[in-house]
């Protein structure tokens, strides 16, 4: 893209003189590079900055116009607040489970041969499964452990009620369903950190008189910890903003924030509350922004160690 911009610049005397007219120091390359990034910046502007701006502003606008704090206040009340708690609980539970099991799976993968077929298969499978969500995933679970699901019926035939009709649509069930894409995502995100672990560190610990415990306690864990935490935060954000899976599983009410937003915007009673929807979205933006800031800081810390 930068190359295209450059050749366009060369073909156009206007642009190139304008560029030349800039001060020499750091002059020529930067403006052209920026030119190349323009489509991307436009994309980000239209699809990220603009909507966020609309949400932020709209959250403080009342139903009849005019500035108000009512929408934001509503977030902290009753069932709306509960949906934030539920969302955070679900995201936290599924990201902790995803992080732990994903990390273990990733560790199992790197313990094998780096070019092994198994590793290639598992990582590609993770690439697919990490994107697996929405109606398909919901259906997969309903069809297996739902009220009339294959496994439920099998156990029922043997006189065992696994009771999934209840818990599948509550926090435990949703956590289980979310783990389905959280664990593979963790594998993908955490593998590079594990790959960055040098075998020399283990051997250096050995020759210096350390045991396996010493190695994990003083070397591997401190080095991996920031990456692990960062990856867990990424998983949290991933779960927090997920919508379609729960929407497909839970038809009534808004047990998580994205569903509340949907409710606010498409109320069956016809009472659309755009201001509340935007306030809810603002709440999500704030939480995700906090989480992603933490992620970025942790990434920067661990990136220094992994060269």
């Amino acid at each position: 893209m930068a190359a295209a911009a450059q050749s366009a610049a060369a073909g156009s005397p206007d642009i190139s003189t304008a560029v030349d007219a800039r001060p020499r120091k750091g002059g020529r390359r930067l403006p052209l590079a920026w030119l190349g990034a323009l489509p991307f910046l436009a994309y980000v502007g239209i699809f990220l900055i603009l909507p966020t701006g609309i949400v932020v502003v709209g959250a403080f606008v009342g139903p009849k116009g005019g500035v108000t704090l009512e929408n934001v206040k509503t977030i902290f009340q009753g069932f709306v607040f509960d949906s934030f708690v539920k969302s955070i609980e679900l995201s936290a539970a599924s990201s902790i489970i995803g992080a732990v099991f994903g990390a273990l799976l990733a560790y199992a993968i790197v313990s094998g041969h780096p070019d092994s077929t198994l590793r290639r298969i598992v990582t590609s499978a993770c690439g697919v499964l990490a994107q697996f969500g929405g109606v398909t995933l919901a259906f997969a679970f309903i069809a297996t452990i739902g009220g009339e699901g294959l496994i439920t019926v099998f156990f029922a035939d043997h006189g065992i009620d696994i009771g999934s009709n209840v818990w599948l649509f509550e926090l435990p069930g949703l956590t289980l369903v979310y783990s389905y894409f959280q664990i593979p995502l963790m594998v993908l995100v955490f593998l590079p950190a594990l790959d960055g672990i040098k075998p020399q560190w283990r051997e250096a610990t050995d020759t210096l008189g350390g045991t396996g415990w010493h190695y994990w306690r003083h070397v591997a864990a401190p080095i991996l910890w920031p990456s692990f935490l960062g990856a867990a935060l990424l998983l949290f954000a991933n779960a927090f903003s997920a919508y379609a899976t729960v929407a497909a599983l839970v038809s009534q009410g808004g047990i998580i924030v994205p569903l509340q937003i949907a409710n606010a915007l498409t109320s069956e009673t016809g009472a659309v509350d755009a201001g509340l929807g935007k306030a809810l979205a603002l709440g999500m933006v704030v939480i995700v922004a906090l989480v992603m800031t933490g992620y970025a800081l942790l990434q920067r810390k661990s990136a220094k160690w992994q060269r």
Partner: peptide, 14 residues
């Protein structure tokens, strides 16, 4: 109780 120096990248980075 042997001291070993590796080819590279053996320092604990943290």
């Amino acid at each position: 109780g042997m001291g070993m120096v590796f080819q590279a990248y053996s320092l604990f980075p943290h």
